[in-house]
Protein backbone atom coordinates (compact mmCIF):
# COMPACT_ATOMS: atom_id res chain seq x y z
CA UNK A 1 0.00 0.00 0.00
CA UNK A 2 2.99 2.34 0.41
CA UNK A 3 3.06 3.00 -3.32
CA UNK A 4 -0.15 5.03 -2.85
CA UNK A 5 1.80 7.59 -0.83
CA UNK A 6 4.65 8.01 -3.29
CA UNK A 7 5.00 11.66 -4.38
CA UNK A 8 3.84 11.04 -7.96
CA UNK A 9 0.81 8.98 -6.87
CA UNK A 10 -0.13 10.74 -3.61
CA UNK A 11 -2.13 13.49 -5.31
CA UNK A 12 -4.32 10.90 -7.08
CA UNK A 13 -4.73 8.97 -3.81
CA UNK A 14 -5.87 12.16 -2.07
CA UNK A 15 -8.22 12.90 -4.98
CA UNK A 16 -9.71 9.39 -4.80
CA UNK A 17 -10.25 9.68 -1.04
CA UNK A 18 -11.86 13.15 -1.32
CA UNK A 19 -14.08 12.03 -4.20
CA UNK A 20 -15.17 8.91 -2.29
CA UNK A 21 -16.03 11.03 0.75
CA UNK A 22 -18.12 13.41 -1.39
CA UNK A 23 -19.94 10.55 -3.15
CA UNK A 24 -20.67 9.01 0.27
CA UNK A 25 -22.05 12.30 1.61
CA UNK A 26 -24.14 12.79 -1.55
CA UNK A 27 -25.67 9.30 -1.36
CA UNK A 28 -26.36 9.77 2.36
CA UNK A 29 -28.15 13.10 1.75
CA UNK A 30 -30.04 11.71 -1.25
CA UNK A 31 -31.36 8.80 0.81
CA UNK A 32 -32.45 11.03 3.68
CA UNK A 33 -34.10 13.34 1.15
CA UNK A 34 -36.05 10.46 -0.42
CA UNK A 35 -37.05 9.02 2.97
CA UNK A 36 -38.22 12.44 4.16
CA UNK A 37 -40.30 12.97 1.02
CA UNK A 38 -41.89 9.52 1.35
CA UNK A 39 -42.67 10.04 5.03
CA UNK A 40 -44.26 13.41 4.32
CA UNK A 41 -46.35 11.87 1.54
CA UNK A 42 -47.60 9.11 3.87
CA UNK A 43 -48.40 11.54 6.65
CA UNK A 44 -50.28 13.77 4.20
CA UNK A 45 -52.27 10.76 2.95
CA UNK A 46 -53.30 9.46 6.35
CA UNK A 47 -53.88 12.85 7.94
CA UNK A 48 -57.63 13.14 8.77
CA UNK A 49 -59.52 16.05 7.32
CA UNK A 50 -60.65 17.01 10.83
CA UNK A 51 -58.56 16.77 13.98
CA UNK A 52 -59.07 13.43 15.81
CA UNK A 53 -61.90 13.64 18.33
CA UNK A 54 -61.47 13.04 22.02
CA UNK A 55 -62.94 9.76 23.41
CA UNK A 56 -66.42 10.28 24.80
CA UNK A 57 -68.91 8.40 26.98
CA UNK A 58 -72.66 8.98 27.21
CA UNK A 59 -74.89 8.04 30.13
CA UNK A 60 -78.63 7.79 29.38
CA UNK A 61 -81.48 7.02 31.73
CA UNK A 62 -84.68 5.41 30.29
CA UNK A 63 -87.68 4.29 32.39
CA UNK A 64 -85.54 4.42 35.51
CA UNK A 65 -82.94 2.03 34.07
CA UNK A 66 -79.44 3.27 33.46
CA UNK A 67 -77.91 2.45 30.12
CA UNK A 68 -74.34 3.21 29.19
CA UNK A 69 -73.40 4.03 25.67
CA UNK A 70 -69.69 4.28 25.02
CA UNK A 71 -68.24 5.50 21.81
CA UNK A 72 -64.50 5.70 21.53
CA UNK A 73 -64.32 8.45 18.98
CA UNK A 74 -66.65 10.51 16.88
CA UNK A 75 -65.71 8.50 13.81
CA UNK A 76 -67.14 5.32 15.38
CA UNK A 77 -70.58 6.74 15.88
Amino acid sequence: MNFLLEPAIAIYTALAVALTVWIGIFIFLWRIDSATRELRRRLDEEAPAEPPAAPRATLETRNGHTRETVSVTDSQK
Partner: peptide, 18 residues
Protein backbone atom coordinates in the same frame (compact mmCIF):
# COMPACT_ATOMS: atom_id res chain seq x y z
CA UNK B 1 -30.77 20.43 -9.26
CA UNK B 2 -29.50 17.99 -6.66
CA UNK B 3 -27.87 15.74 -9.27
CA UNK B 4 -26.29 18.84 -10.84
CA UNK B 5 -24.96 19.85 -7.42
CA UNK B 6 -23.48 16.36 -6.94
CA UNK B 7 -21.69 16.53 -10.30
CA UNK B 8 -20.64 20.17 -9.72
CA UNK B 9 -19.06 19.38 -6.34
CA UNK B 10 -17.36 16.27 -7.74
CA UNK B 11 -15.92 18.52 -10.48
CA UNK B 12 -14.63 20.92 -7.82
CA UNK B 13 -12.95 18.06 -5.95
CA UNK B 14 -11.24 16.97 -9.18
CA UNK B 15 -10.26 20.58 -10.04
CA UNK B 16 -8.92 21.12 -6.53
CA UNK B 17 -6.35 18.37 -7.06
CA UNK B 18 -5.74 18.39 -10.80
Amino acid sequence: AKILLGVWMAGIVVAMFL
